[in-house]
Write a protein that binds this DNA or RNA. Structure first.
Lengths: 226, 226
DNA sequence: AGGCTCCTTGACGCGTTCTTGATGGCAGCA
DNA sequence: TGCTGCCATCAAGAACGCGTCAAGGAGCCT
């Protein structure tokens, strides 16, 4: 039941150092030596933390970061030879949790790994499944059913639905929904919510034009009831 | 409604730089120049993030870190002149979320502040729910009930009700209500208050023409009692 | 390159909410 | 009694928010 760390790095000596030291601390270590392999590994292995080198052979490191972030909230520690401050800023703003410059002390790196793992452990508990007369939702498996039949929801739809379900029964303000789904820089794009509320209703509500579950509270926000 | 950052640092030029840059980004900035003051400030000001210098005059920085951690999960970014790796390891293991070594680029620091704030979108303390013989109010969920049945309130009605409930039992002047609900530019539009007080009474009072909860204090303001 | 899904963005009609003015009641006062 | 604040109530136009649709564009898979 140990924790799984994905190392994305193409420099063999560094890989070796990391593998030895991380294994010695009791982590399970997986290696990906290209951006493409990293993305595949994130889906298959579901790591608890990612150590990501930005200088990859195929895809730009920041691009990898962006794509991983799109599908997971796993802690990402960026690892790079460049000491350029702009890179740091860009990586952190794209969703990296930490940034270490090579050459790095292995003790510092391990400490940062611990600090970031600690945070993700105290992360919010997973949402329990939902069953209503008309649909079922499984947030852990990302599966939705309506009248027993599978329904496909997009990533953004899941995020919005999660935030609604997390506080179900209460009215959630536009700003809170926008920040939870699109990020902290958002808050005034209420029309996004309209589009996605509309889509969720069409996929889940028995009569989308007279919503029974996803309720609009004009001027304030939305409320999910069941 | 902006986010509050506590800077714990005794070097005046650095304090100055941080204050200017953080304010320019729209954060509220509080300063503590000693460990003792920092601990007090954490309790009183409830910051959303702490920038902590380890080299403090009175208490050892790591000890401050430990004590803050004992009472709060607020993100802490450690800021230090020592480049000693052991310090980093110790600080991160004691619960720091991030570590920046002086001299630092202000852009990098701001990016790390953003990255750490992103994780802890803490909302302002909500008003506690209200229960009376005739109605119930839940300000966190934005839900109102009268005789057990849901009642719809408009955004302006909620804002007015919140301000009244925040100071319930006391008479609140017209100007204060108007500024709290409509904004600081208002204060003379007592008309608005009459209209909305009327609507709240019709929605909540058992006998709207003889109010029992929302009391008019002629020439002064309104008072909400329960 | 092509098709596909998904996200973003703008436009329009409609219903709700806000603002504003008018009317009338009530109390205090000369 | 008439006058003067202050308040409650009502109603109507203006402003705003929402649902809906569709087009454009970016990313991904084959």
């Amino acid at each position: 039941m140990s924790q799984r760390i994905l190392v994305v790095e193409d420099d063999a000596p560094i890989v070796r150092t990391l593998r030895i030291n991380l294994r010695a601390r009791g982590y399970e270590v997986d290696i990906a030596t290209s951006g493409r392999a990293a993305l595949a590994a994130v889906d298959e292995l579901v790591p608890d933390l990612i150590l990501l080198d930005l200088g990859l052979p195929d895809i730009d490191g920041v691009e990898v970061l962006r794509r991983v972030r799109r599908r997971s909230d796993v802690p990402i520690v960026v690892l790079t030879a460049r000491s350029d401050a702009d890179d740091k800023v860009e990586a952190l703003d794209e969703g990296a949790d930490d940034y270490v410059t090579k050459p790095f002390g292995i003790d510092e790196l391990l400490a940062r790994v611990r600090a970031n793992l600690r945070r993700s452990l105290s992360a919010p508990a997973p949402l329990p499944p939902v069953h209503t007369d008309d649909f079922d939702l499984d947030f852990a498996a990302l599966q939705a059913r309506r009248d027993g039949r599978p329904v496909r929801l997009t990533p953004t739809e899941w995020k919005l639905l999660s935030e609604l379900a997390r506080h179900h029964g209460t009215v959630i303000p536009h700003t809170q929904l926008l920040q939870a789904v699109w990020g902290p820089a958002y808050g005034r794009e209420a029309n996004y919510l309209r589009v996605y509320a509309n889509q969720l209703r069409r996929k889940l509500e028995p009569d989308p034009s007279h919503p029974r579950y996803l309720i609009t509270e004009a001027g304030m926000g939305y409320c999910l009831r069941w």
